[in-house]
């Protein structure tokens, strides 16, 4: 079953077309990552899916319903973590959760929600005294209250420390294992890689790459960079490289393997690969790569 269907969605803000006809589908129980730089149109897309705005064009369905016209029916089955939203600063964490439980037909117990979000020790703290990352966790607790079938997470881990981030990932994976469909947006390729099985990369309102996580990343994988030794012709290297400002850059599906090949080749010739850098792809690499292949 398809939980989320987006077909040719367009959406403008005051004449500015923020989303220009995108299409994708998310199967039930799947984690889908929407990646993209600032201003790519991720939040605009999520807010249409969550029923905050009407699609200007195209067709959007969540659990078979139109998120805008069937908002009330859908709200009982979806949870949303907005990129930005306010709290009542004078309420404590526990009071905030209790207030939102009041709004929810079949809420999780307060302690369960706080536990999932890692806020158990902060229950008595006023919201105004929470740190940015703690507020983000409270966001998560509220989004999970109604045991949603579909969960929208707009940059869920922004502002969280590494520990909170990885425990949030565990929560997200746990929910997906129980059958929750999750659409998350992120700037971090790592986050998408760790969580999602499918993804789409947005840029300037369009989807520039999409599909299964592994297939989409495979050809662009990682990169190995090193200072090109003197008198070495890039064409002699065992792997294809591009030269960027004195550095040879080799893009490879498996950067570890590529670096070994290059080092072995260098050792055989008594060369040193100075400034060797091996890393898996970042979102920025992906964009450079996509732009290169578009040309």
């Amino acid at each position: 079953m398809t939980a989320i269907q987006v077909n040719g969605l367009t959406r403008s803000h005051q004449g500015f077309e923020a989303v220009k006809g995108i299409s994708f589908e998310v199967a039930e129980g799947e984690i889908f990552a929407l990646l993209g730089r600032n201003g790519a149109g991720k939040t605009t897309t999520v807010e249409v899916l969550a029923g905050f705005g009407r699609a200007d064009g195209g067709r959007v369905r969540v659990l078979g319903l139109d998120p805008h016209t069937d908002r009330a029916a859908l709200r009982r089955r979806t949870g949303i973590m907005l990129q930005e939203a306010g709290f009542f600063p004078d309420l404590t964490v526990a009071q905030t959760v209790d207030t939102w439980r009041d709004f929810t037909a079949a809420p999780r117990p307060r302690d369960e929600a706080l536990g999932l979000a890692g806020l158990t020790g902060r229950a008595a703290t006023k919201v105004r005294q929470l740190s940015g990352g703690e507020k983000r966790r409270l966001d998560l607790a509220l989004a999970l209250l109604g045991r949603p079938e579909v969960l929208f997470l707009d940059e869920p881990t922004t502002g969280m420390d590494p520990e909170a981030r990885s425990s949030t990932w565990d929560v997200v994976r746990g929910l997906a294992a129980q059958g929750t469909t999750i659409l998350l947006t992120t700037h971090y390729l790592e986050e998408a890689q760790r969580l999602a099985s499918t993804m789409a990369i947005m840029d300037e309102g369009e989807i520039v790459a999409s599909g299964g996580m592994a297939e989409t990343l495979a050809p662009r994988g990682g990169r190995v960079a090193f200072r090109l030794p003197a008198h070495v012709d890039p064409g002699d290297l065992p792997l294809p490289v591009t030269v960027e400002g004195g550095h040879a850059v080799c893009r490879a599906e498996d950067p570890d393997l590529a670096s070994q090949t290059l080092l072995t080749w260098a050792a055989e010739r008594g060369l040193r690969l100075a400034g060797l850098e091996v890393r898996t792809a970042t979102l920025e690499d992906l964009f450079l790569d996509l732009q290169r292949s578009a040309r």
């Binding site: 969550a50 908002r71 939203a85 306010g86 709004f103 929810t104």
Partner: peptide, 17 residues
């Protein structure tokens, strides 16, 4: 105040109509 601090937006993200 609640509108500008995006509290109304959060309330609308709940099951409330």
């Amino acid at each position: 105040n609640r509108r500008d601090q995006l509290v109304l937006k959060r309330l609308r993200a709940s099951e409330l109509t």
